[in-house]
Each structure stands twice: as structure tokens, then as C-alpha cells.
Design a protein around this nucleic acid. Structure first.
Lengths: 211, 211
DNA sequence: TCACATCCTGACCGTATGGTCAAGAAGTAG
DNA sequence: CTACTTCTTGACCATACGGTCAGGATGTGA
């Protein structure tokens, strides 16, 4: 006998609703910016009355904060690849792949992040100053080690990191421009692969890490 | 005898006020986004009463449109360098310099542009589809010629352009993040030079255009 | 000087938005 | 079953915003 649609438990209800709201909020914040987003729009997209949003998230700011924090977590996770790699070809190559994949699968998140930083990080400045600074210093050390081991050219690790972020996130943040220049169509699988290959090729060769 | 402060002519008044308003608007739109910006904030920054803004620019949209169009013009101008260059080292090198300089001197403009594109270009979509497409195709042809002449590797010109845009504009759009990672201080002259040098070095070597 | 066009601005208006609330529906635990 | 906690939602509120307008100030051209 198939499981009947028994009523959801309170815990499940809460989890599910928070998930639905956060998902809708990310989309709306990405498309309209914080100022342009309205609770009503988010509510409609989530399929809930507006008052229900305020039951789970007291204010628009609180909801936005949660969205940004979730994105930041994703962002950091993509970087684990970096540490275990024996050299720049594997490490940076895999990092580019991972970040390009995020840009493809999760463009709204990338846009919200970009918007937040562009507006001087009113909500996550403390994260930038602590977690991001630590993370960056750690990766810079890894890159410096590769340089010392002669596995790549003497490049300022800082600017290399900026370049990696800029290039990979560009495919999400400026995805609309890229689509327009692609005749109005989203990039195909092959085009995404070509993009990844181009980025990896130029950067890895550019830092003297290939062949 | 020094020129007395004679009253401004109507024409001068109009020019000056439009300039002041557009300048303030660019800053506010960059910092708050279109939705977050208010006419009152722009008016305060411009030092004019709000009603005066509506005298020169009928609506918030009209004002925003003018700001974005001005930025787009700047953006295109930076590209003339491209055409006269004998090869990628000079052409792309100078283009990177020019765009980095814009990012440094004119970060608000870059942010407004980024925001506009991120929100699916509600205001300048027609420009993207015409002027930008033409411009891009022209530059792609130049790059392809360099490839055919053996002056650089066989790289998809499209992705190279995206990389140039992404990397150079990153220093404006994510300037706040970069400052935070720089200990909270704006980049010094030397640091800007180092940034330019890193970007040029990695890209030019990465496309096989150096030595 | 005078008639006119342009510029200026405080006061005002309609609307949309973030947020509240009270009363009821629905799951829960003893 | 009962007392409870949690969830739901239409109606409501105060505020802030984009935009208007009338009437005065200021430059202009004859």
C-alpha cells in the first residue's frame, strides 16, 4: 500500500517552508537587488502569503542575511579542492572547474554575492574581515609554496586569486550579457566546456604551470 | 581686474545642474542599486531640492537611463586602442591598461553597469543587442587576425574578451572586497601597477603572445 | 523697461511597501 | 479527549517614495 499523504509534522513544515522561502528569496534578490526586491514578490514566488514570510523571517534584512550567508558557505566549500592538490595544474584547474560549475548551476547566488559586495557588504562585512581574510591567506600560502617548488612562475598570488574569482564568477554575474552575445541563447553544454577549457588554458599557461 | 562672479547664463545653469545631478546619481545608483537609490538621496548629494531633479529629469528611470548610457560610451571609447595595434602585446596590453584605469578612476560607473547587466539589462538591452554585438564581433575579428598571423595561440576570441572584461572590471566592482583583503586600505599607486602588471603578464603569456 | 521663457522649490498627493495583529486552523503530548 | 504549542492568513497601519504643481525668482531679447 502506497504511503498515504499523511500530514507533515511541525518540524517538516518549518524546514520545508524555510527552504522554499530562501529559494524564492535568492532568485528575487538576484533579479531585483535588495532594494528592488519586495516581500510580496518573494511570497508570490514561494507560493505563500506575505504574512507567512514574516512568521519565519522577522524582517526583510534577516531573510536577506540568511540568503547571503548560505551563498558564502557554498563559496568556501568549492575551495577544499585547492589544498589536497599536488600542484597548480590539478589544484587551480579543479578550482576553476568547480567555480565555473557553481556559476552555471547557481547563478542567482553568485549575483546576490556580487551585489552585496558591490554595495560595500553591509551585511557580511564581518565575514569578509574574518573568514574570507583567513581563507585567502591560506590559499596564498599554498600558491606561494608551488612557486617556491618551481611548479609555476613567480606571480603575486593575490592577483592570481582575484583573476580566478573574476573570470569564473563573470559567467554567472554577466550571464545575461554573454547570452545576448550568444544570439540570445543560453550556453550549451559544449559551450560551457569550451569556456572552462579556455579559462584553464589561458591561466595555467599564463602562470607557467603547463608542460 | 578679476572676472566678477557674474550670474550664470541659462544654458550654463542647465549644463552645470545636469552634470551635478548625473554625477550624484551615478554614485547613489552604484552604492544602493536602482531600487535602493532614492531621488531624495541623489538630490541631497547634488545639493539641490528633489523637485529640481524632476525638472531636469522627468523620472527616476530617465535619470538612470542617462547614467547608464554615459557609462556605455566611456566603455566603448576605451576600445579604440585595440584597432591600431600591430599585435596582441600592444593591443591587449593597452586595452588592459585602459580598462584598469577606468576601474580605478571611475568605479561607480563600472558598478552601475554591472548592476544593470546583472538585472538582465532592463534599460540598455537594445544597446547590448546592437552596438555591443557589433563591437564584440569587430574585436573578435582583430583577435582572429592576430591568430591567423601567428602572433598568438589559437584561443577562442570570445572567451578571451570575457576574461579581459571580467578581470579588469573586477577591480572596480569588487573593489570593496579587495580593499578589505588589503587590510581595509585602498590600493596604492604601486599596488595598482602591480595589479596591472600581473593581469597583463598572465593573460599575454597565457595566450602565447609574449617572447 | 517690459514681456517672456526658463529655472526653482515648498507643499502636497497617491501608492506601494515593510511590518503587525488577532483570530482561527492544525499538529502534539499527556 | 483536552490543553498546548505552532502555524496560517486577511485585514490593517505607518511610512517613505516617486512624482506633481502652483507660484515666485531669475535671466533674456527687443
Amino acid at each position: 500500500m502506497p504511503q498515504t499523504a499523511r500530514p507533515l509534522s511541525k518540524k517538516e513544515i518549518r524546514q520545508e517552508n524555510e527552504r522554499v522561502i530562501l529559494e524564492a528569496a535568492e532568485k528575487v534578490f538576484a533579479e531585483a537587488g535588495f532594494g528592488g526586491a519586495t516581500m510580496q514578490l518573494i511570497a508570490d514566488l514561494a507560493g505563500l502569503p506575505k504574512a507567512n514570510l514574516h512568521y519565519y523571517f522577522p524582517t526583510k534584512e534577516a531573510l536577506y542575511r540568511q540568503v547571503v550567508q548560505a551563498i558564502f558557505q557554498d563559496w568556501l566549500k568549492a575551495a577544499d579542492i585547492f589544498d589536497d592538490a599536488p600542484g597548480p595544474v590539478e589544484g587551480i584547474g579543479a578550482y576553476i572547474d568547480a567555480k565555473m560549475e557553481i556559476s552555471r548551476r547557481h547563478p542567482a547566488g553568485s549575483k546576490v554575492w556580487a551585489s552585496e559586495v558591490m554595495h560595500r557588504a553591509p551585511v557580511i562585512q564581518d565575514y569578509l574581515e574574518t573568514t574570507l581574510v583567513e581563507w585567502t591567506e591560506g590559499r596564498m600560502a599554498v600558491i606561494q609554496r608551488w612557486i617556491d617548488e618551481g611548479k609555476m612562475d613567480q606571480i603575486d598570488p593575490r592577483h592570481l586569486l582575484y583573476m580566478l574569482w573574476a573570470t569564473t564568477q563573470h559567467y554567472a554575474d554577466f550571464g545575461h550579457q554573454i547570452e545576448t552575445l550568444n544570439g540570445g541563447a543560453a550556453l550549451s553544454d559544449d559551450q560551457w566546456e569550451a569556456a572552462k577549457a579556455s579559462v584553464k588554458s589561458i591561466i595555467l599557461k599564463g602562470i607557467g604551470a603547463e608542460s
